[in-house]
């Protein structure tokens, strides 16, 4: 294998078995493990993300691709030195206090994981204290807050206020999303960003971390 195009294509096609075979072939050929990941596997996943954003792929297809990529990464991992492969960032997500809706938040979590981020999902009905604890425990750089109700969206503001009280507001970027949420609301409550959908959320996280 003299380039990683075939490997990337297998990721894009969601062909887990083929990804494993090509990854193993690249390893056997003595190719640089980090290049296998960055130029082959992640490169393929980047294309998947772009295609999803323009509506050219369905979520289940993206998840298949992500599973294929992960299978390849697992083969390469033992060849890497400690710390050589770091996640792109750690994100704590959850639906805010009083709100039981979670599929939008789950979707965002899956898309972020598929893009190489470490995601700590706190589930639904999450209190500010639970968010704070998870941020501190995982040294997270991003906090993603979800709400679907007009009566719970203000819990986002409350959570941001508690971040300030705890003195960690400047350590994390806060993203907000959900049906009743808008950019205007995000600005009003002092969030760092608003994403209308899962694909945009992934893109926004990338921007904020860079």
């Amino acid at each position: 294998m003299n380039n990683f195009e075939e490997l990337s294509k297998a990721v894009i096609a969601g062909q887990e078995q083929k990804v494993k075979e090509l990854t193993q072939l690249a390893i056997n050929e003595g190719l640089d493990p980090l290049s296998i990941i960055n130029d082959g596997l992640i490169q393929g996943m980047n294309v998947v993300g772009q295609r999803f954003k323009i509506g050219d792929m369905f979520v289940p297809e993206v998840l298949m691709c992500a599973r294929a990529m992960s299978a390849g990464v697992e083969l390469v991992k033992p060849l890497l030195l400690d710390g050589e492969i770091a996640s792109k960032g750690t994100i704590v997500i959850g639906t805010v206090k009083g709100d039981l809706h979670d599929i939008g938040k789950n979707l965002v979590g899956m898309m972020l994981e598929s893009s190489g981020y470490k995601v700590i999902d706190l589930g639904v009905d999450t209190t500010p204290a639970e968010f704070i604890a998870a941020i501190k425990e995982n040294n997270a750089q991003i906090l993603g807050l979800s709400a679907l109700l007009t009566t719970t969206m203000l819990a986002m503001k409350e959570t941001i206020e508690v971040l300030k009280e705890e003195g960690i507001r400047n350590d994390v970027k806060v993203l907000v999303g959900g049906a009743p949420i808008s950019q205007t609301f995000a600005d009003e409550i002092g969030a760092d960003g608003f994403a209308p959908d899962a694909a945009s959320a992934t893109e926004l996280v990338g921007k904020l971390l860079n």
Partner: peptide, 8 residues
């Protein structure tokens, strides 16, 4: 109908 943005 439902409430506008407000906490309960």
């Amino acid at each position: 109908f439902t409430l506008p943005p407000m906490l309960i």
